[in-house]
Write a protein that binds this DNA or RNA. Structure first.
Lengths: 141, 141
DNA sequence: TTAGATGCAAATAGTTTGCATTTGT
DNA sequence: ACAAATGCAAACTATTTGCATCTAA
């Protein structure tokens, strides 16, 4: 089985985890999802690709990826289900419209200095971040 | 019933919602909780204060407060339960240790300019934000 | 070879809903 | 007075667990 390994798959393997079919499939679904996806959608797409992969493994994989900071669960509007956000380079930024729940993504990086400052001041090692803004989008103003 | 109204209670009333016993109790529990609290803890403390308040009302209130940006659900470590974070002045910042799940809060405000820049560039009105960093705390390094 | 990961199905837990009743304004 | 909110309990849905089996390294 010699597919191209995505950088995240390498990260996974380097952290000492096996590159199983279930994990690689979930990873691929996440990576081709555009960045925001609910667990229900992951389940659906995974079993479209390979129906033999069980629900439990998908959840176990999502938990594993979360603990590795590969993804991050966040709330968009459903209270019952989180949305998983891929953390592309260990970070992610978006705006959530509190009226229509639209998600607007944006790029920035004023946080690099802040990261360094916090690492020094608080004696921590930071590997990623999520920045969410809440407000009204142009359509809802 | 003429208690002192907290600024958030005023905000609630001004948004056209009734100041019911259930809502004021949930608000008080949140405000005296230190800022991070799960729905289970809210339920527990609310019914310790007034056992006649039903579960459903607590959830309805948490949803209402979320939609008003009074609180924000976020994931700390359980995948099944979110943690509600009070948004003190419409924003909140913390670091989550991905090893021990400790939450470290910090102050900052380099985001004010970013907020203004985004409002202009993307034609949105922003009312709050949540900034989460992930990494290892001093005890886990 | 073997620790780690899986799939299944049943169990669990958290949240939501419908509706008759109550309450804030 | 009356729309809005409530409490109850049942219904629902998402997630987790235990365990025998399988598989990547």
């Amino acid at each position: 089985m010699s597919e191209e390994l995505s950088p995240r798959a390498v990260r996974l393997r380097d952290a000492g985890h096996k590159l199983t079919n279930a994990r690689l499939t979930v990873l691929d679904v996440l990576e081709t999802s555009g960045g925001h996806i609910t667990s229900a959608e992951v389940l659906e797409r995974v079993s479209a690709v390979d129906p033999s992969i069980g629900r439990a493994s998908v959840f176990r994989t999502l938990d594993l990826f979360t603990s590795l900071s590969i993804i991050r669960p966040t709330y968009i509007h459903t209270s019952l289900t989180p949305t998983y956000v891929l953390l592309p380079d260990g970070h992610h930024h978006h705006i959530i419209c509190t009226n229509c729940n639209r998600v607007i993504e944006f790029e920035e990086c004023a946080l690099d200095k802040m990261t360094q400052e916090l690492e020094t001041r608080l004696h921590v090692r930071l590997t990623g971040h999520l920045l969410e803004f809440y407000g009204l989008c142009d359509r809802c103003l």
